[in-house]
């Protein structure tokens, strides 16, 4: 089973052809050159693959690949907590 990190990197690669390795500390704009349209596509693909509605307020705070991974991990743990109760 793929980790969240692997899934996020796969989504970024599906939106934009990037020939070099993608790591969590990379900046979405400065290292991966994603623009606002690319970001919307990343969000749409995440929403579709993770069945999770991204709050557009959160998008403003997302600067790196790791930010996306952490946001999804946090959402996942919330869901688990919710399921436990």
């Amino acid at each position: 089973m793929k980790t969240t990190e692997e899934k996020v990197i796969e989504i970024i690669r599906s939106v934009k052809e990037i020939k070099y390795p993608i790591t969590p500390e990379m900046s979405l704009t400065d290292d991966l050159y994603l623009d606002s349209l690319d970001m919307l596509m990343v969000i749409n693909t995440i929403e579709s693959n993770f069945s999770y509605k991204v709050d557009m307020g959160e998008v403003e705070r997302i600067k790196t690949v790791g930010d996306i991974i952490r946001t999804l991990e946090a959402e996942k743990s919330k869901t688990l907590i919710h399921e436990k109760h």
């Binding site: 599906s14 939106v15 349209l37 596509m41 749409n44 693909t45 579709s48």
Partner: peptide, 28 residues
């Protein structure tokens, strides 16, 4: 793109010529 932005409508790009992606957006 400039016309779309100036309309104030929600914009949702789809991958270049990707009909599966477009259909996914249409569904939601």
């Amino acid at each position: 793109l400039e016309g779309i932005k100036s309309s104030g409508a929600k914009i949702s790009p789809f991958k270049h010529n990707d009909m599966n992606y477009l259909e996914m957006l249409l569904q939601k």
